[in-house]
């Protein structure tokens, strides 16, 4: 089980704002995800990789053509970065105040 405190801590680390009204739902949702991961662990071990193990209907080769699409602008790319500077992502020398 995931506790509300853990959810708040993770939200803080991920810079997500979660208010009291959302906390309940987020905690339940996260618990569900962890449960699902446990379920996968219970499944019979699948030997990834060996050629013989690729089932006929396995999803393979989701391949993209080598065609240029427009990139985001520098402003858009840095829009959600709290510490952008001069068009770069910026990391201050440890201890220095930004």
């Amino acid at each position: 089980m995931v506790t509300k405190e853990e959810v708040l801590k993770i939200a803080k680390l991920a810079s997500l704002e979660i208010d009291e009204s959302e906390l309940e739902e987020a905690t339940a949702g996260m618990s569900e995800i962890i449960e699902f991961a446990n379920k996968i662990n219970e499944a019979a071990e699948f030997n990834f990789g060996a050629e013989a193990d690729v089932p006929d209907d396995a999803l393979v080769n989701a391949i993209r053509a080598d065609e240029v699409v427009e990139s985001f602008t520098n402003e858009e790319i840095l829009k959600n970065c709290k510490t952008a500077r001069d068009g770069f992502f910026y990391i201050a020398k440890s201890g220095r105040k930004i």
Partner: peptide
């Protein structure tokens, strides 16, 4: 020397303005 990056359609061109050949996938 592909035209685009490995996992997105951003250009691989050398040089240019910093952080301008980027998209949500490659950042």
């Amino acid at each position: 020397s592909t035209k685009t990056k490995l996992f997105c359609g951003c250009t691989t061109e050398f040089g240019g303005e910093q952080n301008a050949h980027c998209c949500p996938i490659c950042i």
